[in-house]
Each structure stands twice: as structure tokens, then as C-alpha cells.
């Protein structure tokens, strides 16, 4: 727990699993979950570097702004997904080929 590498490997694992979710899922909400995993991985990196390398709290500030951006992004994405559901009856992103029908 006192090695930077253990946190970086954890964050690399979370990033890879999030990327896998984004690549392979069809469901829009599942893709959003993958994006949240990726953002969490980035946050772990910021906080770990700010403890082990710089010992300043600037990394924590970046983590706060990332969390805030994730909240804004989730709200807007879910509004879009609800519209997609009203338009085509499901939220499979591979079937979404029209902006309006």
C-alpha cells in the first residue's frame, strides 16, 4: 500500500475494463458505466501522484473537477438516452442511425 505502482496497476486495470465495456456493449447505459470506470481510473492516478510524487493537493483539485464533469456528463447522456428510447424503442447504440425520425 506504500508503493505508487500498486495504485497505477489498479488504475490501468480499471481503465482497461472500462475501455472493454465501451467497446463491446450495445446498451447505452452500459457504455456510460464504462466511461465512469475510465474516469475513476484517471482519478486514482491523479490522487496517487499527488501523494507520492508532488505532495501537493493540486491533484485532488483535478480529481474534484473530473468528478464534477462526470456528473454533468451523466445527466446529459441520460437525457439523450431517454430520447433514443422514445425514438426507437430500445437503447442499442448500434441501431441508432438517425437523429430524428
Amino acid at each position: 500500500m506504500n508503493h505508487l505502482e500498486s495504485y497505477l496497476i489498479l488504475s490501468a486495470l480499471l481503465f482497461s475494463l472500462g475501455l472493454y465495456t465501451v467497446i463491446t456493449r450495445k446498451n447505452g447505459v452500459a457504455i456510460l458505466m464504462g466511461i465512469e470506470l475510465i474516469l475513476n481510473a484517471a482519478n486514482i492516478n491523479f490522487v496517487a501522484f499527488s501523494k507520492f510524487v508532488t505532495h501537493q493537493v493540486e491533484g485532488h483539485l483535478m480529481a474534484i473537477f473530473i468528478i464534477m464533469l462526470a456528473a454533468a456528463e451523466a445527466a446529459v447522456a441520460l437525457a439523450i438516452i431517454l430520447n433514443l428510447y422514445n425514438d426507437q424503442g430500445n437503447i442499442n447504440v448500434d441501431e441508432a442511425d438517425a437523429l430524428k425520425r
Binding site: V29, I67, A71, A74, L78, I81, L82, Y85, N90, I91
Partner: peptide
């Protein structure tokens, strides 16, 4: 950051995601 993670991710974003699943 830990408290913010609990409040915003678990209390906000996760509830939004569950709403998204339940509504669709």
C-alpha cells in the same frame, strides 16, 4: 475526495444510471 466520491458517484451518478435502466 473519498467523501466526494461517495456523495456524488454513489448518491448521484449511480442513482441516475439506475433511473436510466429502469426507464428504458
Amino acid at each position: 475526495i473519498a467523501v466526494t466520491q461517495i456523495v456524488i458517484y454513489v448518491g448521484g451518478i449511480l442513482v441516475l444510471l439506475i433511473f436510466g435502466i429502469m426507464l428504458t
